[in-house]
Computed example of a mutant assay.
Amino acid sequence: MMASPQDLYYAKTHEWLRIDDNIATVGITDFAQNQLSDLTFVELPEISRDVEAGDEVAVLESVKAASDIYAPIAGEIVEVNEALEDAPELINNSPYDEGWLFKIRFIKEEDVDELLSAEEYDELCED
């Protein structure tokens, strides 16, 4: 397994966040896309939807299973990666770049404090 990028935050449910001011880009980790294998369909959240940390916001379907994606932080969905509708395999090929899922404008700084560092996330995946 490749080491998780150091500049991101991680949720125990295998989402990553890249934070830029008060906007967090969210995707699934390399570990998660590996577990799911070849993705065939992505159901993205609605733009302008308000979510709480832990809410189910998206669904990924693969040849193996369907998996719920959770909001790692509370806020408002401000953008979704529309490229995934025609090319869900972007998540498999580029989970930390082209395969991002959605962007969320977050409101609670303390939500970020609950997230894991790359080292903590990698330890979680080893267990």
Rank of each mutant, 00 (worst) to 15 (best):
D86E: 14
K64E: 09
I91R: 03
E76S: 11
E82R: 14
E85V: 13
Y96G: 06
E56G: 12
V63F: 02
A74P: 14
K64V: 09
D97E: 14
P95N: 05
G54A: 01
E85M: 13
Y96T: 04
G75S: 03
I73R: 02
I77T: 04
D55H: 07
Y96N: 00
L60S: 08
L90Y: 07
V78S: 11
V78M: 02
V78N: 10
K103P: 07
D55M: 15
V80Y: 13
K103I: 00
E98A: 15
A71E: 06
N92Y: 01
A71R: 08
I104H: 07
V63W: 03
A58G: 08
N92P: 05
E89T: 14
E56A: 13
W100T: 08
A65T: 15
N81M: 05
I77M: 02
F102E: 03
E79T: 15
K103C: 06
L101P: 04
E79R: 09
D86V: 08
E76R: 13
I77P: 04
L101N: 01
I104N: 07
L84M: 10
A66D: 00
S62H: 11
N93V: 05
S94N: 00
V80R: 03
P95E: 09
A74F: 03
Y70K: 00
A58H: 09
E61A: 00
A71M: 01
D86P: 05
W100P: 05
V59G: 02
G99W: 12
E61T: 04
P88F: 01
A65C: 10
A58M: 00
Y70E: 11
A74S: 15
I104K: 07
V78W: 09
V80Q: 09
I69Q: 03
N81Q: 01
A58C: 12
N93D: 13
D68N: 14
E76A: 11
N93Y: 09
E89N: 14
E61P: 01
P72I: 04
G54R: 10
P72K: 06
E56S: 13
E56L: 12
V63D: 07
I104V: 11
I73E: 03
I73S: 09
G99Y: 13
N93F: 09
L84D: 08
L90S: 12
V63T: 01
A87G: 11
I77C: 02
E98R: 15
A71Y: 03
N81G: 04
Y70S: 00
E82P: 03
N81W: 08
A65R: 10
K103V: 02
